[in-house]
Amino acid sequence: MPKIKIDGIEFDCPEYWTILDAAKFIGINIPTLCYHEGLSTWGGCRLCIVEIGKDINTKLVSSCTFPVQEGLYIRTASKKVIKARKMILELLIAQNPTAKVLQDLASKIGLNKIRFKPKWENCIYCGLCIRMCEEQMMAKAIGFVNRGNKLKITTPFDKNSEDCRRCGGCIYICPACTIRCEGSHPESVLCNGCYNILQPTCLDVHDNYSCWMGLEGECGICVTTSTNQKINEKKEI
């Protein structure tokens, strides 16, 4: 039973768990996209990244594929994580701005601009449909073809596959092409229709993970002389 510490909460967990399992167990929400309970983990979308390690020697890993280890120190919402996660989501939305799942995530995380040129494609290459076809439907009819910027998901030779039973499992599980967000228009790639105006209030004292914006006091709202001292005290401890 390895002992791990997630966001300051210390507890024991079974050896076969991943970081995502452990986080779910204690109720910490980590956004995921290519993860599904019924399928094998893949770690392709990178949305579920967390920071492991202490002090300067930290590393970003995908929590859905990283197994728990003895003495693992995890931060799920540090400044580094939120910055990287916003960037990943930005890239995903630039690939496929019409996906409702992605737009919802953007509203949730608080993404407010897309710096990349939108591609308006239908696929984000999360690989869910392929794993669904292989593991749940036992068909193995579709898969990745080509590579690099020519990568696509099709049947062999782009023909109707004999292995396909037309069960529709791939369409059922697809987060991108089936459920469309009607809010996003070419003028503004980001929809933000579900954006919640009621934001959590700022705390007096903040450290790496209690700032909900991931800014660590850079906005200047919570930074006063008294709190600055408190932070310094905390760091020393």
């Binding site: 292989e134 193995k140 009819a141 579709i142 898969g143 990745f144 073809v145 049947t155 062999p156 030779f157 596959s161 292995d163």
Partner: peptide, 8 residues
């Protein structure tokens, strides 16, 4: 092995 793997 599945044809899609060979094709891939």
């Amino acid at each position: 092995i599945p044809l899609i793997n060979v094709y891939g």
